[in-house]
Amino acid sequence: MGGTARAAVFLGDGTYEVREFAIPAPPPGGAVLKVEAVGMCGSDVMQFHGQKHVPGEASPVVPGHEIVGRIHAITPESAAAWGLAEGDRVCVDEIVKCGRCKTCLAGAGLCTNLRLYGYTMGADHEGGLWGGYGEYLRLLPNTHLMKAPESLTAAELTVFEPLANALNWVASVRVSPGDRVVVQGPGHQGLLCAAAALACGASQVIVTGTGADELRLKTALALGAHHVIDVEAEDVVARVGELTGGSMASVVMDLTPVPAAFRTALDLTALSGARVALAGLKHFTPVDGVLVDLISLKNMSIQGCAGSTPSSMEQAVRLLADRPEIARTMAGTHVGLDDVEHGIALLERRAAGEDAVHVSLVHED
């Protein structure tokens, strides 16, 4: 197609480079996206430091999986298959299934040829532009694309991906009207779990954090959470008891990286039939002092949570179109390609005097 594009390449050792790549042509049955913005998340930090947590993860790699952009070039068959045209804005599902293996044909299980934008196709693989930290992205056949609303900016729309995770997780623990939900951890994923629980009709949503989370707890209230708790200033179990009239939580969602938070989650649950969603990775640190008898005695359900589904992706984009205030409240901070390291510092919470509820990399026009 001619021309070059810039992209940040993570080298897997705590460093990155901004490199130039040739703007690709659409692959057979595919397209090329001009990336407008990509959300930055904690898993990007893991990639930055070379911590691999996705099967088949490549390094060096152009990262970025919370991708929003416009169709730059598209083959006729892809235009017909996707119902899209050049210039259309889309949100990109990072998970690409082959559609041919046994699990894909059976409609269940993990695709044996799974590819993920920003993870599994490295900077040396077929042109290298396979992640949202690049100004252009090569789109494979079978990519799940969702037409995006024009009422929000691309940076605001990048929360679609963590919101899709959140909607999947609240569904997995059956959040419904009348539920009392406690969300532990007010990172951008935890905040969107609070928003998702509210969208499902939870009657009470409580978000917990620490004294360093002032901005994030204020954002939780702006999203509609009923109460926030600083766990360093208050006894969180006693406070949840007060706020719920002694009933405690029917659902606890643990989004923290702190192993001890799981113990607290068990203490926050109601006496019978509560559900606990575990989505905050503890970096393979054992959880000491867990009274597993509580799980049995309280008839508790424990649900591991990871990722989204195609349907929760579509639900997330629809919800942002219907309730744009979620995206605007979560807009956070934007960085450019030449300032990726500042974005990483914000994610790692080591940017002096700064905090952000969400960080997006925005490409210049």
Results as ranks from 00 to 15, higher is better:
Ala22Pro: 02
Glu135Leu: 06
Tyr133His: 14
Gly109Ile: 13
Leu116Asp: 03
His49Ser: 09
Arg70Tyr: 03
Ala85Gln: 10
Gly134His: 04
Gly39Glu: 03
Leu116Val: 15
Glu135Asp: 08
Pro24Ser: 07
Tyr136Ala: 04
Gly132Asn: 04
Val32Leu: 09
Val68Lys: 03
Ser59Trp: 01
Glu94Trp: 07
Met146Phe: 14
Gln47Val: 13
Phe21Thr: 01
Thr103Arg: 10
Lys97Leu: 07
Gly131Phe: 00
Thr75Arg: 15
Leu129Trp: 02
Met40Leu: 15
Glu150Thr: 14
Pro28Leu: 06
Gly128Glu: 01
Glu66Gln: 14
Leu116Phe: 09
Ala79Asp: 01
His49Gly: 09
Arg138His: 04
Pro27Gly: 08
Leu140Pro: 00
Glu156Gly: 11
Ala81Asp: 05
Lys52Gly: 10
Ala58Met: 06
Ala31Lys: 03
Ala37Leu: 05
Gly39Ser: 11
Cys101Met: 13
Ile95Gln: 12
Cys98Asp: 14
Thr120Lys: 05
Val159Cys: 14
Ala123Trp: 01
Tyr133Ile: 05
Trp82His: 06
Val90Asp: 02
Thr158Phe: 08
His49Lys: 15
Trp130Cys: 04
Val61Ser: 01
Ala148Cys: 12
Ala106Val: 03
Arg89Trp: 05
Ala85Asp: 07
Pro24His: 05
His144Asp: 05
Tyr133Glu: 05
Lys97Ala: 09
Gly107Asp: 11
